[in-house]
Design a protein around this nucleic acid. Structure first.
Lengths: 331, 331
DNA sequence: CTGAAAGCGCTTACAG
DNA sequence: CTGAAAGCGCTTACAG
């Protein structure tokens, strides 16, 4: 029992005006106040819902943005989508999400599919493949950007790149103020560009960095604390959030005063649930959703005002939270 | 420099046929073989890309599905999107993703927005709000389903509900076979419907369950192992993946033979990186993306053949992996 | 198997 | 401020 859809003509008839006037009233063009009211009432009565396909066909724009992921997994991806879609929604856009599931060919295919959808802009996350369809976007004047990383044919695209340089700088300068000259960095087995960035920043500031690799499973907090105490020069430990929390808890267990005898800084690099600590951890907090919202904003801006994207846009996703576990260097 | 878009008419002219024939050739209706070839060639030469907005306007369907999330975070959400979109892509559909960011009113608004988009189907994840726009979907004969949970006006919708009953049953029957009569369940602080389900299944099978709450940070594997050994009746431990891995590693450290003296079963309830164990963990593996792919499949089926959804569709997301750490009960 | 024509629902110059 | 008309790009009865 499919209802025939209510159209502007139906609304027009009921409001006693022409379809053109209905369209104007509904899209915000000035209309006689009385007509405005009648039309709105009629639209409500009839349950009129504009058909965006028709609107898209007439106008140039579809008010949609496509996002193509190379793979769809992990905390970063979800935060990215969240940042993208919530920002786009506010601007009246809808977001298409798709994933190539690790397949480069499929990636190219999906990009091409969004050409048919006539998306107003395209976002390529970890874009990989030949990028054959990209030229079409360019010649149709549709903005395309890469997010996080790019390879193959997607290397030419303007890139949105997450960074924590501000937060790292803020943290490091606080460390300096407090007189820390040598710190221990607990590094997880997997690659951690953020921790690497942090270490580089510290070293630039002439803080010497000792790096210790840890295994998620076999991490022994007490051992690390003891070891840090024994290395006389070390006055602070930087660690991923989970490990930093465990250090705090262990410190309490062995009555080691944080931050009096040792400072601890966390790098909150995932939306992980972590054991509660009694004191508030000083930390570099990471919010990857920012890269989504910044990218969305700049893309929408390009759409409305034609501002071109830079070859590379660094998006600060870090923030420095100066709380309880970082204090003056003990020695 | 916006190119005028290439249309079926352009292709028709170049191929020396009518637009109607081009349309037929491109949508798969039988056409003279020679024309077919000419048209395909012409389309390629001109770089023709069909406009799906025009197609949507003409046809009833848009080949899009909308997904509205109450909040967009966590491993479940990303797996859901992944399952949905990869399945839909295969069927030629595109997925709109949006999030209400925890706001019920916004949720209703987003649902309404997908009405304008004329999505062919709507998926409400953790739907909450009045559901005012839902009636429109129903009367327009657009399938709507709820995923995972539903409340407020969304309670009437057919629900896709994740379950692990099959996997739990398989695991429990294996435990029985091996003669385990009393097991220890390590329960994380947070709610875990899956672990709860497992415990219920075990108890139904007359396996007695001892539950121990653990804190992610202060978990001491050796202590747990010692304690389990002391409780004479306990022959197996069930734990979340991370903890199970830590137990295995600790067991090795204290030369406790797994599964000879004690069996360990993991519940892999997230896409977590976990310490490598030397032996392969016996585990109930959870794949939440299945709920996405099953929902997508059934929705598409409803779209093509009109099969109505059941009030409630339980989607088994668990699978039992019978590996090395579960063996005969030691005592 | 094919073409001419109509129509999906909207918006916007154009002329009043 | 408003209406009649054209047209966005496609597909599908309809008649050949």
């Amino acid at each position: 029992v499919k209802d025939k859809h209510v159209t502007v003509y139906d609304v027009a008839k009921r409001a006693g005006v022409s379809a053109a006037t209905v369209s104007r009233a509904l899209t915000g063009t000035k209309v006689k106040t009385k007509n405005q009211a009648n039309i709105q009432q009629a639209a409500r009565d009839l349950g009129y819902v504009p058909n965006s396909a028709a609107r898209s066909l007439r106008n140039v724009s579809t008010m949609t943005v496509g996002a193509v992921f190379h793979t769809l997994s992990g905390a970063l991806a979800i935060e990215l989508i969240s940042g993208l879609t919530s920002t786009l929604e506010q601007r009246g856009y809808s977001l298409f999400v798709s994933t190539a599931q690790g397949n480069d060919e499929q990636y190219d295919k999906l990009v091409h599919r969004f050409l048919e959808r006539r998306v107003d802009a395209l976002l390529c996350i970890h874009g990989a493949g030949t990028g054959a369809a990209l030229a079409r976007f360019i010649s149709a004047n549709i903005p395309v950007a890469a997010l996080i990383s790019q390879s193959g044919g997607y290397e030419q695209l303007p890139l949105f790149d997450p960074t924590i340089s501000q937060a790292a700088k803020a943290c490091v300068s606080r460390l300096k103020e407090f007189g820390h000259r040598r710190i221990l960095v607990l590094h997880p087995g997997r690659a951690s560009p953020t921790l690497d960035k942090f270490m580089a920043t510290a070293q630039q500031a002439k803080i010497s960095v000792e790096k210790q690799d840890i295994q998620p499973g076999s991490f022994n907090a007490e051992e690390v604390l003891q070891r840090a105490r024994r290395s006389p020069a070390i006055t602070a430990i930087i660690a991923p959030h989970t490990e930093a929390a465990q250090l705090c808890i262990a410190a309490e267990r062995i009555s080691l005063d944080i931050p009096k005898t040792l400072s601890i800084v966390a790098l909150r690099d995932r939306a992980l649930q972590v054991a509660a600590t009694r004191v508030a951890l000083s930390m570099i907090n990471l919010d990857p959703s920012k890269i989504g919202s910044v990218a969305a904003d700049l893309i929408v801006e390009q759409l409305s005002s034609g501002t071109k994207l830079k070859r590379k846009t660094a998006v600060e996703i870090g923030s420095w939270l100066d709380r309880d576990t970082l204090g003056p260097a003990a020695r």
